[in-house]
Amino acid sequence: MGNRSRTLVIALGIFFVGVAVLAKFYAYPTLAVAPADQVAHTVSTTQQDATVFVVATQKETQLPLTSTRTVRGDVVAAEKISEALDREVVVFDTAVVTDDDPQYQFPAEDDAKRDEKAPLSFVQERVVLDAHTGEAVRWNPDPAKDNSGEYITTTLNPNDRKRPGDPVFKGHEGLVLKFPFGTEKKTYQFWDSTLRKAFPIEFQEETELLGLKVYKFVQDVPKSEVPLVTPLKVPGAMVEATGQDAVEVQRSYQNIRTLWIEPVTGAIIKGEEKQFATIDYQGEAKITATEATIAYNDATVKKNVEGAQENGREEGGYQEKASQLHLIGFWVPLLSLIVGLLLLAAAAFFSLRPRTARRAAG
């Protein structure tokens, strides 16, 4: 091999090694971030009617439930908070509406029966997450000066929002809306909105959904008292408190949450919850407030895997996103490194070969 050819091979070898390094340590970290402008919708339903205590009738009733979650990114807040914390974060506003009407819409502000038309359950949150790991990041500025801080509420009234430091809300913790890029087969901490704290969620198995490899995680939320903003009172007759017009009771809740995670992106492909909540009096369960198994419907799972248009915007499609990210994060660095090292080894071999030949001739 001539000097010019050898120089070219060395240059190509260095080039491919450089591609491997750039793909692994620059391109992949740049792409492995949650999009700040993400908008997502999920729909969960009960296959069998749930048991729900209806306040209006004061009776346990069998109802089909539909739970709709909307997640919307706040790009301006994300940029502002990222700069203030000197780390890359995303900010998401989420709302979960659960009702027996699958097409439920909030009534207008001036509707005289607005309170009567409230959904069976409503939770709205603002969360700040690390853009790479999905873990909650504390951000609690003075609301009077900056309204971008995290909160949780069960009403549409902004004055009812609970911010970190409130007796019933210390702030988000653990994973909230997604798992880390490159999810591992281990135990994580995952947020529970009802109890407003994180609990361990354990890896169970690797399986498939619609041909997509996913990790199955299960979280057992033990029976716990639900934080209440104001004391909960019911007629004494409802909880066998004879002779008392009204008594103070406590709401208890437990849940078995199962999540199927696409490990490359950390996206939640499917979720299922087996909830059991009761109204307790003097430490004893008296009324079943909620008993339901609710899970993502088939359309939501399919959208998450294959992608679909929602309100004119592409959502889901994590099968393709995972393939692209895996290509950049694994195959491009690996193959480029192999090619680069082979080229450098070939150049070294042909550089030493003439010397060896001359020694043999001498």
Rank of each mutant, 00 (worst) to 15 (best):
Y28S: 10
G174Q: 11
T70V: 15
G236H: 12
A292H: 07
L343V: 02
A50Q: 06
D130V: 00
Q124H: 09
V19A: 09
L12T: 03
E173G: 12
L334Y: 05
F169A: 01
E273S: 05
P158Y: 10
A308F: 12
T207Q: 10
H326I: 05
F199M: 04
T45E: 15
D160H: 04
R4Q: 11
K286M: 02
L8N: 01
G13R: 06
I268V: 10
R72A: 12
F181H: 10
P141L: 00
Q282G: 09
V89R: 07
V214H: 00
V229L: 15
Q275P: 04
F25P: 11
K80Y: 14
G312I: 08
A299W: 09
Y104P: 11
A56P: 04
Q103N: 14
A27T: 11
T42D: 09
V17M: 11
P222W: 12
E150D: 07
Q319G: 15
F15L: 07
K286T: 02
Q324I: 12
E310G: 02
E88C: 09
R196C: 12
V21N: 15
G271K: 03
N157A: 15
T133D: 11
Y26E: 05
V43L: 11
R6F: 03
F169G: 03
A347H: 14
V128C: 08
F53A: 06
D74Y: 06
I261Q: 00
G174R: 13
G329E: 00
D86C: 09
E306A: 13
K286Y: 00
E320H: 09
R257V: 01
T278K: 05
V54E: 11
R257T: 02
E225Q: 12
T278Y: 02
Q62G: 11
D93R: 06
R313G: 01
G312K: 14
T290K: 07
P119K: 00
E273P: 00
L343T: 12
V249E: 11
W331A: 08
E202Y: 00
P235W: 10
E116N: 13
A144Y: 02
P158H: 15
F92S: 05
E109G: 08
V9F: 14
L327Y: 13
A267M: 07
A20I: 04
E320T: 07
W260G: 04
L325P: 01
T61Q: 14
V168S: 03
A237N: 08
S5F: 05
Q244F: 07
V76G: 09
T68Y: 10
L209N: 02
